[in-house]
């Protein structure tokens, strides 16, 4: 089986989807000729022509709005927003148009659109190139929010997203493009070629939206994570020796409630980790769900480990980032609290 980085897997997903369905078009800032700022669309314009893979002006509202119009007419646009931090001018389109057209058109029109965007830190981009806005999407009904954590899932989830009849926000953790970053920034990252999830079929396959994956089975504590935090959680579990069950949510909406409840009811403890800021972050929703559904199984309070409530820092990235030391401390805390 082929070995792919997450970038190659994402590119392969679009390639497969474009090959199978002429309605799939791929576009965004520097997406066509240049091949994408992170090279995710490299070669697609050469292969499919400038009608199907093309550059747009720097106009996020225009990009997403036009994609919605195309989708209502039956195309399957897959638009790239160069950084998740750039999506705000198009957020109006996402929340007011894409998410609601099915509802307000009596199911007459749908928006089968994907908006891909690199998310999180990892390139020392500071406050305008490192944000994790997933909670802003998960808060909106009518759209789906997907965050893969490895090349295999990235390809399967992206194909599933393109084939889905609802709008999907597809957030790609920049830290994971080249390898499973575990938060130890002072150590080299293992490349995907040496990780089992870097094995990616060349052909079409899907990973279903709304299904979490258990990355590590454990008996003591459930860790609810997604994206880059999967590997931070793995490192923390290993370093503390605590038998954690690590659940990679993969999609935030729809959420795999069953997987969460099953695990927390088994372990009786829960640690939630995300890179985004803390207050009203997605972890708050997860904590509420666990409290509502698993309260009588809990042996200690739910703990969140998140980015701080600050702008994403430049110089202080490793103080901000919820790395293995902070996550490990949270694991120890929930065990001691019992």
């Amino acid at each position: 089986m082929a070995r792919m980085t997450m970038i190659q897997a994402i590119r392969s997903a679009m390639d497969v989807a474009m090959d199978r369905d002429d309605n799939v078009v791929v576009f965004g800032e520097d997406v066509g000729y240049f091949g994408g700022v992170f090279r995710c669309t490299q070669g697609l314009q050469e292969k499919y022509g400038p009608q199907r893979c093309f550059d747009t002006p720097i106009s996020e509202s225009g990009i997403i709005g036009a994609a919605i119009g195309m989708a209502t007419y039956g195309l399957r646009p897959c638009a790239e927003i160069q950084f998740a931090d750039y999506m705000y001018p198009g957020y109006d389109q996402i929340t007011q148009e894409a998410s609601r057209i099915r509802y307000r058109s009596n199911n007459d029109f749908t928006v089968p659109m994907v908006v891909r965007m690199p998310t999180g830190g990892g390139i020392f981009g500071g406050q305008t190139h490192s944000q994790s806005p997933e909670a802003l999407f998960a808060h909106v009904s009518g759209i789906k929010t997907v965050i893969p954590s490895n090349p295999y899932d990235a390809k399967g989830l992206l194909i599933a997203s393109i084939e889905d009849d609802d709008p999907v926000m597809f957030l790609e953790p920049k830290r994971l493009y080249n390898g499973p970053f575990d938060g130890h920034h002072d150590r080299p990252v293992t490349p995907w070629s040496k990780h089992e999830m870097g094995e990616v079929p060349e052909e079409h396959y899907t990973v279903p939206l709304g299904k979490a994956a258990v990355r590590r089975e454990g008996a003591d504590v459930t860790m609810l994570v997604y994206g880059a935090m999967v590997y931070v959680a793995e490192a923390a579990a290993e370093e503390t020796g605590i038998d954690a069950e690590i659940i990679d949510l993969r999609t935030l909406l729809p959420l795999d409630m069953e997987a969460i409840e099953k695990s927390v009811q088994k372990t009786g403890r829960c640690v939630i980790v995300h890179e985004a800021t803390r207050t009203c972050g997605y972890g708050a929703e997860l904590a509420a769900i666990v409290a509502e559904n698993c309260f009588y199984h809990l042996e200690s309070p739910v703990v969140r480990v998140t980015g701080w409530d600050t702008p994403y820092p430049h110089a202080h990235e490793w103080d901000y980032f919820p790395g293995p030391a902070r996550v490990g401390a949270a694991l120890q805390k929930v065990m001691e609290d019992a």
């Binding site: 509202s61 709005g65 036009a66 919605i68």
Partner: peptide, 8 residues
Amino acid sequence: PLGVGLGF
């Protein structure tokens, strides 16, 4: 912008 998408 949706109207432009329809044009596209």
